[in-house]
Amino acid sequence: MGAVRRHLARPELSDGARKDLSDALHDLLRRAGRPSTRDIAAALKGILNPPPSHTRVHDLFTHRRLPDWELTMCVVQVLACRARGLDESAECDRFDRLWSLADEELVLDPLAGESDRPPTGQESTQPTSPAYTVPWTAPIVRAPSQHRPVMPDPSRCRSILFGVGAYAHLEPLPSVPAGLRDLAAALAYPSGAFAADHSRVVVDPPNATEVLDLVQEASDEAEDTLLLYFSGHGLIERCAS
């Protein structure tokens, strides 16, 4: 008979971002066939320096503290390669967001202590037996270098910044053109989320149709963030009673 695959015990966590991250890790482990923590640690050799022990991998799934970001992302990559029907890059993005939300939750929690935060020391010395043993082939994966804040993808974002500075019957607003250009520069990649070729600045459009056409085009193309910004006089047209 084959080895019995036992479940790793889930940590006791209150509802929130840290519990969501823990549940997602256990679900990914299940979809990957529940390899042992020793097998996962072996797959990480040559990726993380120093390589993690199976104890650290075990703690990632069972300890109530927020796990180390780098170790979490590498384990996610290993498991995503093993699971069927999962896209490695999409899973990494998903867990990056989950980890960031859990980290933010921890920062804002006045009752959080050191036992809740990611470990800062070296390998744990507490012995831990592997929960199960299954065959494992180590995939070739890349290790993220550092934690990144969750930001929109510039290639999938669109922005339309438009405004009116010259009016026939209202006071002109000469600051509108410069303001639109300055805002576009502030939002431009890499400091912002909008690539130059995906951001349009429109000053004094001849008619509303031109703006609406650009908005429709940007709306069709945007797969992440769509930003619409208007600068000019704000008037509410009232119908005669």
Rank of each mutant, 00 (worst) to 15 (best):
M1W: 12
R5G: 00
H7E: 13
L8G: 01
P11D: 08
P11G: 14
P11T: 09
P11E: 01
P11S: 11
S14T: 12
A17M: 10
A17E: 15
K19D: 12
L21I: 03
D23H: 06
A24V: 03
H26C: 06
H26V: 09
L29K: 02
L29H: 06
R31T: 07
R31N: 03
A32D: 01
A32V: 05
G33V: 07
P35I: 00
R38H: 04
I40D: 01
I40V: 03
A43Y: 02
A43V: 06
L44R: 09
K45V: 11
G46V: 07
I47W: 03
I47P: 05
I47T: 11
L48A: 13
N49T: 14
H54W: 08
V57G: 05
H58W: 04
L60M: 14
R65T: 14
L66S: 08
L66T: 13
P67K: 09
D68I: 08
D68V: 10
W69N: 13
E70W: 11
L71Y: 11
L71A: 07
M73C: 11
C74I: 09
V76D: 01
Q77D: 06
C81Q: 05
A83T: 02
R84C: 03
G85L: 07
L86R: 02
D87W: 12
E91W: 01
D93C: 10
R94E: 11
R94H: 08
W99S: 13
S100W: 08
D109Q: 10
P110M: 04
L111C: 00
L111K: 05
Q122C: 14
S124A: 09
S124D: 10
T125E: 15
P127T: 14
T128V: 15
S129K: 15
P135Y: 02
W136Q: 07
R142D: 09
R142M: 08
P144H: 06
Q146I: 03
H147N: 13
R148G: 02
M151P: 02
M151E: 04
D153M: 09
C157W: 10
R158V: 08
F162G: 00
G163D: 08
V164S: 07
V164L: 06
P172M: 00
P172Y: 04
L173Q: 10
V176E: 05
V176D: 02
A178K: 06
A178M: 03
G179Q: 07
L180H: 09
L180K: 06
D182L: 05
D182F: 02
D182H: 05
L183E: 04
A184K: 06
A184F: 07
A186H: 02
L187C: 04
P190S: 05
P190W: 03
F194N: 07
A195Q: 12
A195L: 15
A196T: 13
D197I: 07
H198C: 15
S199V: 03
S199A: 11
S199H: 06
R200I: 14
V203N: 07
P206N: 01
T209E: 08
V211G: 07
D213I: 12
L214H: 15
L214N: 12
Q216K: 09
E217Q: 12
A218H: 10
S219P: 01
E221H: 11
A222K: 03
E223T: 12
D224G: 10
D224H: 14
D224R: 11
T225H: 14
T225F: 14
L228V: 08
G232T: 00
S241M: 15
S241P: 14
